[in-house]
């Protein structure tokens, strides 16, 4: 949520701008919930995957002049592959140690983005990422984001209520039992991670072309805790809950912009409120508003 809405004059323009951001955050949190809530893998590297998607599309479209649609697709596919690789340790490593491994992955992605200066421009970031001509205006872009988010939501909502989704939840609730019942546990984890990777890679690309500037800091712990908060508020293992959670998060944090605080204080204030909320939920209501599972059943 580090992307400030500079230069937006009217309320309408601001809301349209906000709409696209909310859509992208929903995409990020839905794919997060598929892996964390339904499959029980706390993938703290999720925003690292998002960063990969964002950089892939930004570089392909800006430097190699590929069409936007191809950039988006390439971001999704490449991130999907990386997510598949990130799923491999889940074969041996479980629970909180898997969370640590994926946190380590996030650090590595960050370091590569900072140090791969010849490609990523390091901490300077990539400015002026072009938008496709059709979606130049914010309102057209909102339409695009809304379409993709709605399609993804419908797909994921059906997926988790299908036999495949129930198998995922069996893996989360008791891996040994799922194994004994003949479920291919690792394959299920792998597929869940890859689907999630494809979606979050696209979300990253959508974000890159929307805010038109990305830097390694855009995909760092601040974003991770936003994803965690969105999911935990709405509910672990609930797609509808996730949408509600992200909207609540924005509804709570955005009004801070209109308070007469010095602007340097607003960032820390947002983070503190969000984190206190996250702590409150973990302590008081670990399944969130509409959740059906706890992270560690």
């Amino acid at each position: 949520m580090a992307f400030l809405a500079d230069g937006l004059v009217s309320m309408d323009a601001y809301l349209i701008h906000l709409g696209s951001l909310i859509g992208i955050y929903i995409l990020m949190s839905l794919s997060f919930n598929l892996v964390v809530g339904y499959t029980g893998l706390l993938n703290l590297g999720h925003v690292g995957l998002m960063g990969i998607g964002a950089y892939v599309s930004a570089i392909l479209v800006k430097n190699f002049h590929l069409p936007f649609a191809l950039g988006l697709l390439a971001a999704g596919l490449l991130t999907m592959c990386v997510a598949g690789i990130l799923a491999l340790p889940a074969k041996k490593i479980k629970g909180d140690y898997y969370a640590l491994v994926t946190l380590g992955f996030l650090f590595v992605v960050f370091a590569v983005l900072v140090n791969g200066e010849s490609v990523t421009r390091g901490t300077l970031g990539i400015p002026g990422i072009p938008r496709p001509e059709m979606f130049l205006s914010n309102s057209m872009y909102l339409l695009l984001v809304a379409c993709i988010t709605a399609t993804t939501f419908l797909f994921l909502d059906r997926l988790v209520h299908s036999p495949f989704g129930r198998a995922l939840e069996a893996v989360r609730d008791d891996e040994e039992v799922a194994q004994m019942l003949g479920k291919p546990v690792f394959k299920l984890k792998l597929i869940a991670m890859m689907i999630s990777g494809f979606i979050v890679g696209m979300a990253g690309a959508l974000l890159a072309h929307f805010v038109q500037f990305i830097a390694p800091n855009s995909f760092w712990l601040d974003l991770l805790v936003s994803a965690l908060s969105g999911m935990m508020i709405g509910g672990v293992a609930s797609m509808r809950g996730t949408v509600v959670g992200v909207v609540i998060l924005f509804a709570l944090l955005e009004p801070l912009r209109f308070l007469s605080f010095p602007s340097s204080l607003i960032g820390p204030l947002r983070l503190m409120i969000m984190m206190c909320l996250l702590l409150f939920i973990i302590l008081r209501r670990p399944r969130g508003l509409m959740g059906r599972a706890e992270l560690e059943s």
Binding site: G95, D96, A99, L100, M232, I282, P286, L295, E296
Partner: peptide, 9 residues
């Protein structure tokens, strides 16, 4: 709570 809750906290 087990490891994951502490980690997020």
């Amino acid at each position: 709570s087990k490891g994951l809750g502490y980690l997020i906290a």
